[in-house]
């Protein structure tokens, strides 16, 4: 990691009790420092506000990590929010795309569903790009978007995941992702 103070990209997470204005507060702080909010995802997880984002400063006048931490500190002072700021390396060029798939898993909630299913995918080099889980009473639902390396035997992946699902007593489907170009 380069030791200079210049910021390439910062990863920021904010988690806490939801209230109107959290996003505005964080975005204003970053704008005030001249940071561009590039990729971000913000959602509510069981009522908690959760935000993960990458931001970049201007090449000539980028604030230091410490400047950003100091500017965000007032938002977390009352203990209702937790924020972290970390330096990350800019993403390397994406790999040659293989196949894009959507995986659905649902069944009775039990320990280890995410661990077992994602391990089964990892054995084939499957790379999860997006994953959501929801617990609705006793129903546990996992939906993941993933890439499989070119040349992967998708039937074998499906067989492996079905075996994992049987052992867990849950249902699994793996389908090619639809990419609509309109």
């Amino acid at each position: 990691m380069p030791d200079d103070a210049r910021v390439d990209e910062l990863a920021i997470t904010v988690i806490g009790r939801d209230r109107p204005g959290i996003i505005a507060d964080v975005a204003e702080v970053l704008a005030g420092l001249g940071m561009n909010l590039t990729d971000s995802t913000m959602t509510r997880l069981r009522g908690h506000f959760a935000m993960t984002l990458i931001c970049t400063g201007a090449a000539d006048a980028s604030p230091s990590l410490e400047d950003v931490e100091a500017a965000i500190a007032p938002l977390t002072a009352d203990g209702s929010l937790i924020a972290t700021v970390s330096r990350v390396h800019p993403e390397s060029a994406p790999e040659a795309p293989g196949g894009h798939y959507v995986l659905s898993v649902h069944g009775a909630d039990r320990l280890g569903i995410v661990a077992s299913v994602t391990r089964g995918l990892a054995e084939f080099g499957g790379n999860i790009t997006d994953l959501t889980t929801r617990l609705s009473n006793s129903l546990y639902v996992l939906v993941a978007e993933l890439d499989l390396p070119a040349g992967t035997d998708v039937d074998m992946v499906h067989e492996r995941l079905s075996a994992v699902a049987r052992a867990l007593g849950v249902e699994v489907t793996l389908r090619p992702a639809e990419t609509d170009v309109l």
Partner: peptide, 16 residues
């Protein structure tokens, strides 16, 4: 649930 379009295609009806 077996046919949802992606990870952001399921939504919670209930507000917690």
């Amino acid at each position: 649930l077996d046919r949802v379009a992606g990870a952001h295609a399921i939504h919670t009806r209930k507000v917690y």
